[in-house]
Amino acid sequence: MRLPEPISALCLFVSIMVALVATQPAFAVNPDEVLSDPVLEERARDLSATIRCMKCQNQSIDDSDADLARDLRILLRERLAAGDSDQEVLDFLVARYGEFVLLKPRFTAANLLLWAAPVLGLLGGFLLVMRYFRTRKGEAEPAAGDLTKAEHAKLTKILDDRE
C-alpha cells in the first residue's frame, strides 16, 4: 500500500529535519556555566572553541564533557567577567598550561622548525631525487674527457681498425 503524496513528502521532510538536528554538534556547556550577559557568553563560546581539552586532547573545551574542560570553561568565563580581553585570557591559559592548550598553535620562533619541517622535508626529498637521477645519468654515459690515456689510445686503435 502506497502512502498518499502529501504524507510521503511530510515523512521525507521530517526525516531530513531529524537527520539535520541529530548531526549538529552537541556542546558540553552546562546551563549553570552560561553567563547572563549574551555578549560575554558569545565571546566565551568563541574562545572556548579555540582551547584544547587537556584530557581529551583533540576536542575543544566547548565540546568536551571532561571535568577539566568544565573547570577551564568556568575559569575562562570568570576571567571574561572580571574584564580581561580575549588575548589576556588566552595569554593566562598559555602561561598556566603551556602552548599545547591552544588548538591552533601560535607562530613563534620557538616552534618555527615545526612549521618549516614539511617544507624542508619536501625540499630535501626533491634534492635527493635530483641527485639520484644525475648520478644515474653519469653512470650510463661516461664523458670522453673522463677516459685515461690508455683507454683513449685503445679506443682510437679500435676505430682505426674498423675503417
Rank of each mutant, 00 (worst) to 15 (best):
F92H: 14
L93S: 03
L93F: 12
V94Q: 05
R96K: 15
R96Y: 08
R96I: 06
R96Q: 14
R96G: 09
Y97A: 07
E99N: 15
E99V: 14
F100C: 13
V101Y: 08
V101D: 10
L102R: 09
L102Q: 03
L102D: 04
P105C: 04
R106Y: 03
F107W: 13
F107R: 13
F107L: 15
T108V: 07
T108S: 11
A110P: 01
L112Y: 07
L112S: 06
L112R: 10
L112I: 04
L113A: 14
L114F: 10
W115T: 06
A116K: 10
A117H: 11
A117S: 15
A117I: 09
P118N: 01
L120M: 13
G121W: 02
G121K: 08
L122Q: 02
L122R: 04
L122N: 01
L122M: 06
L123H: 00
L123F: 01
L123S: 03
G124F: 00
G124T: 03
G125L: 07
F126G: 02
L128F: 07
V129H: 01
V129F: 05
M130W: 08
Y132G: 00
F133K: 09
F133H: 12
R134F: 10
T135G: 04
K137T: 12
K137Y: 07
K137D: 15
E139I: 07
E139Q: 10
A140K: 13
A140Q: 10
P142T: 01
P142A: 00
P142G: 00
A144E: 11
A144V: 07
A144K: 06
A144Q: 10
G145E: 05
G145I: 01
D146Y: 10
